[in-house]
């Protein structure tokens, strides 16, 4: 028996909006500690890891570990039918091949049940080793989204370089080049508006902007984004979900041959 009641149902709607274009089908893993997902995009260039911890749910019952294969496009269709203020409850019986999404309006005057078919998905679970990153940049998520969008109108790839001067996002295309430098800035009114750069070593890596723009769809989940970079490792683009967990995107760099 599985029963997860999320008062802030809009969080789940935002999570699906953030990952549905990157991954078609995925297994949601439910255990006593939380609701999680790990999946790669179809070309195995990017990986998404989601964690929603049990304590973030108003009610969390998961009698035994369960893996539920879902088509994220179909799941998103169902969650779009929930109002932004609705309470969302996920329910599944042991051995069932369906999951039920229950949507309750805040004043309980409308209750909807949507039952979705589960699917068998052969997915490969990858071990993500703990890594010491050369540089970690925390910045407003909207700023990062803006930079990725702007640069993708000039070029297809972004070079992210961290030096003691700051973090530089560069691209080049047929029409010209673009460089955007963000310096550390902690003298802001609100902590979420700060840009904080922790650098152990300078680092410079090249990534496909198409993926960065896909990750930026998680912007509504968090005011800030954390970008962790090390040479010869996938970049981690993390959106923390307040009091609950995170969505982390890993993207393999482009490599000089």
């Amino acid at each position: 028996m599985l029963e997860l009641r999320l008062v802030q149902g809009s969080l789940l709607k935002k999570v699906l909006e953030a990952i549905k274009d990157l991954v078609n089908d995925a297994n949601f893993d439910c255990s006593a500690t939380g609701f999680s997902l790990q999946a790669m995009d179809s070309s195995h260039v990017a990986l998404v890891a989601l964690l929603l911890r049990n304590e973030g749910f108003e009610h969390y019952r998961c009698d035994r570990n369960i893996s539920m294969g879902m088509n994220l496009g179909n799941m998103n269709k169902m969650l779009k039918c929930a109002g932004n203020d609705d309470i969302i409850t996920l329910k599944a019986d042991d051995g069932s091949d369906t999951v039920t999404f229950m949507f309750e309006s805040p004043n309980q005057d409308k209750i909807a049940d949507f039952e979705m078919k589960l699917m068998d998905i052969d997915s490969e679970h990858l071990g993500i080793p703990e890594a010491e990153y050369h540089a970690i940049v925390r910045m407003p998520s909207a700023e990062f989204a803006r930079i990725c969008k702007d640069l993708s109108s000039i070029g297809d790839t972004v070079v992210i370089s961290v030096t003691k001067e700051g973090v530089k996002f560069s691209t080049k295309g047929d029409i010209g080049t673009a460089n955007i430098v963000c310096r550390q800035n902690t003298t802001v009114d609100k902590p979420e508006e700060a840009t904080v750069i922790e650098m152990k070593e300078p680092v410079s890596l090249t990534f496909a902007l198409r993926y960065m723009n896909s990750f930026a769809k998680a912007t509504p989940l968090s005011h800030t984004v954390t970008i962790s970079l090390s040479s010869e490792l996938p970049v981690v683009v993390e959106y923390k979900i307040e009091d609950m967990g995170y969505v982390r995107f890993y993207l393999a760099p482009k490599i000089e041959e």
């Binding site: 790669m40 260039v45 990986l47 490969e124 990858l126 490792l233 996938p234 041959e257």
Partner: peptide, 14 residues
């Protein structure tokens, strides 16, 4: 020449 890396060459199956 620049080639797109594959995530599975960094993280191994468990």
């Amino acid at each position: 020449d620049v080639k797109q890396g594959n995530i599975m060459s960094f993280f191994k199956k468990v």
